[in-house]
């Protein structure tokens, strides 16, 4: 690879991509490590109620997905200059309402799916308990995802950073951690008391 060849590659040069991205990856892994420690701490709970393990990846991932959808919708609106975070803005409320409705649908489905698998492995946790755990954690998580997305998009816009570059990885990973904390907390409350 000649020197000029490398220069014309610009931002596509692999060394540059790795150099720009690896530090961010380390920081994000450090944040999500917290979720992992929470999971390891809950080992006994998961050993006793193995059906909970089935819900773990979705609990970690789904909040981040909802946050990512909202963040990219918000940053597009900021880019287009159509929002000033006005509480009377109907589209902002429509986004919030849609995220909550999506969370309700998905976390109800998650509980039913996990219950179905539980029947196969002889789980003793009832559908009611699974619904309570899943929907309660899911809706709390959706609220956190909404607050995080607004905050991150607004702050990066204020700081002059393109929200497309930073908001999604930060919101996704932060919400991942909350997903795990809330899920383990709610599951402990519902099953142990």
């Amino acid at each position: 690879m000649s020197g000029t060849g490398q220069r014309s590659l610009g931002t596509w040069n692999w060394r540059r991509i790795v150099r720009n991205m690896f530090p961010l990856l380390i920081v994000l892994s450090g944040i999500v490590l917290w979720a992992g420690i929470t999971l390891e701490q809950a080992r006994e709970l998961l050993d006793e109620y193995r059906i909970l393990a089935v819900m773990v990846p979705s609990m970690v991932g789904m909040g981040g997905n909802l946050g990512a959808i909202l963040s990219s919708r918000l940053s597009t609106r900021f880019h287009l200059g159509t929002t000033e975070l006005d509480p009377r803005d109907r589209v902002l409320w429509a986004n919030v309402g849609a995220i909550l409705a999506l969370a309700l649908t998905l976390f109800t489905t998650l509980a039913i799916g996990a219950y179905g698998f539980g029947l196969l492995i002889g789980s003793t946790v009832t559908l009611g308990q699974l619904l309570l755990i899943s929907v309660l954690s899911g809706l709390s998580l959706a609220l956190i995802a909404i607050v995080c997305s607004f905050l991150a998009t607004y702050l990066s816009y204020r700081l002059g950073v393109d929200p497309d570059d930073t908001t999604i990885p930060i919101v996704t990973n932060v919400v991942d951690v909350f997903g795990m904390l809330i899920f383990i907390g709610v599951a402990t409350l519902v099953l142990e008391f």
């Binding site: 991205m21 961010l24 990856l25 994000l28 892994s29 999500v32 490590l33 979720a35 992992g36 420690i37 999971l39 390891e40 080992r43 998961l46 773990v56 990846p57 970690v60 991932g61 981040g64 999604i168 990885p169 996704t172 990973n173 991942d176 795990m180």
Partner: peptide, 21 residues
């Protein structure tokens, strides 16, 4: 393997970060 549960969420999140980019 004590530590496996710690690595699971981090490993999954990293896939999203690297391949999303």
């Amino acid at each position: 393997f004590t530590g496996l549960f710690v690595m699971v969420p981090v490993f999954l999140a990293t896939r999203g970060n690297v391949y999303g980019a």
